[in-house]
Design a binder for these strands. Structure first.
Length: 423
RNA sequence: GGAGACGUCGCAUAGUCCGGUCUAGUGCGCCACCCUGCUAAGGUGGUAACGGAGCAAUCCGUUCGAGGGUUCAAAUCCCUCCGUCUCCGCCA
């Protein structure tokens, strides 16, 4: 939820943000309108309610006829109060509806849509397979050769976009996620294994039930939602709490399964395990002071890159355009690894600065020096996912179908240096 | 799944039976000041969040797990839900 005070004091800032995202700027005026209605409506209710309360005390003291007379009056007032309260509640709901439909105010992201990102830098060396004298295999062919990935049985058991990781495939995922966890722990993150089913208010608080609600699995019978990322649970972790950030940002590394319906992506990335309904992820999550958020964003990006370097992958960093931001994000950087068989980059990490947007909905605050409270900023970033296996297999493959193991992962694979195909 | 107990302003607890005197008391903790040569102890005052009005002092409203109901009036009575604990059953 955006800051109502910002909306009142600087509506133009919010309008400009809406335009940059390609969203409707008229929502800003609708919100201002609803806010004014809510305030006048509450003023009316509160005034009469105050009268009702003071009369209630007179009633308690009065006796006999006097009491009867007072009761007649208070009865009438009670009905009016009820009506005014209903009005005020309605106005409140209407304001919230509009506020919830406005995405976070963009901070520094380039304007435009999905294609309008800016490439910040390219790191690592892209291999020239032609020069090496062989045509690269795609990750599924490699994975099947290694007996590491089984999509056929995945489909048999669970349907399309499901898979089994077997043998070195399973070990590689564990290695990757453990390496990510260790990196995070070494940097001072608190490791967390999170719930993957959350209540509606938690899902809503993180902003995933807006435009992309179709992406989310819902268990109707229990009114629970399957998370698409542990960000959801980690954002809810400190909901309705007042945090002490004197010691710097509070950082958590969440380890969880992630579930996505992939509703809008029929036909896209259907081969292999690039786009699947279920995967595992290590996610960084940080609670920090709003004025420290931009710097913290860079730190998260730095740790993502450290992890990519540990996996020895060539990648580029992009500054996502406003129109391609999630509703909670004010700015987002993605790291994309090179995918040799498709001649394109593939998103492996994504770090978002949600400023105070999530914290406001979830009631995460800190105490200021003046003794008041204010919302903190929240940020998240990927440190490793199942999808990384795709980039690792393709980029580190050798002519015979074996796969070189990056040095940073070897300690997690019992020292294994090469993954050998199964004959 | 069955039975019972419980959920109060950081923590602990009073208040609930019998509705109004609750503007929610008390202790601990915390903050400020005072006192004591230092330490310990002591004294005085303050100490929930949110929304609104005001330059401000301050004032008004909402919140006693959540929601609904009864009533002129609900922490207090009724209903539903959630959570915690104890016991039983069932399953891993």
């Amino acid at each position: 939820m955006i800051d109502l005070r910002l909306l009142r004091d600087n509506p133009d800032v919010v309008r400009a943000s809406q335009v940059a995202r390609g969203d409707d700027p008229a929502l800003v005026d609708a919100a201002l309108d609803a806010d004014a209605r809510r305030r006048s409506s509450f003023a009316e209710f509160e005034q009469l309610r105050a009268e009702q309360k003071s009369m209630g005390k007179e009633v308690a003291r009065a006796q006999g006829d006097e009491k009867q007379a007072l009761l007649a009056r208070t009865k009438a007032i009670a009905e009016q109060v009820k009506a005014l309260q209903a009005d005020a509640d309605t106005a409140d709901v209407q304001l919230k509806e509009v506020l919830y439909s406005i995405a976070n105010v963009v901070e520094g992201a380039p304007p435009g849509g999905e294609e309008d990102f800016i490439v910040l830098r390219e790191e690592g060396t892209i291999r020239d397979f032609a020069a090496e004298g062989f045509t690269p295999r795609d990750h599924l062919e490699l994975g099947e050769g290694l007996a590491a990935i089984d999509t056929q049985r995945g489909a048999k058991v669970s349907g399309a976009r499901f898979y089994f990781l077997t043998g070195v495939g399973a070990r590689l995922e564990l290695a990757l996620l453990n390496a990510a966890m260790d990196l995070a722990i070494a940097e001072g993150f608190t490791p967390v294994i999170t719930p993957t089913l959350v209540k509606q208010e938690t899902m809503q608080g993180t902003g995933f039930l807006g435009k992309h609600a179709d992406e989310v699995y819902r268990l109707e019978k229990d009114d629970l939602y399957l998370v698409g990322t542990s960000e959801v649970a980690l954002a809810g972790f400190h909901s309705d709490e007042i945090l002490d950030l004197d010691g710097g940002p509070m950082r958590y590394a969440g380890w969880s399964a992630c579930y996505r319906r992939e509703a809008g992506s029929a036909g896209r990335d259907t081969r292999g395990i690039i786009r699947v309904h279920q995967f595992h992820k290590v996610e960084m999550f940080s609670y920090c002071r709003p004025e420290d958020a931009a710097a913290e964003h860079q730190r998260l990006l730095g740790w993502e890159e450290a992890m990519l370097q540990k996996a020895e992958l060539p990648y580029r960093v992009i500054d996502t355009a406003a129109g391609d931001l999630g509703s909670s994000a004010a700015r987002k950087f993605d790291c994309e690894a090179w995918l040799p068989t498709q001649d394109r980059y593939l998103e492996l990490t994504s770090t978002s600065n949600c400023t105070t947007f999530q914290a406001r909905r979830l009631g995460v605050r800190e105490r200021t020096e003046e003794g008041t409270t204010r919302n903190v900023a929240t940020l998240n970033g990927t440190l490793g996912t199942t999808r990384w296996i795709v980039a690792i297999l393709e980029n580190h493959q050798q002519a015979d179908g074996s796969v070189y193991v990056p040095e940073g992962l070897r300690p997690y694979l019992g020292g294994l240096e090469v993954l050998e195909p199964v004959k």
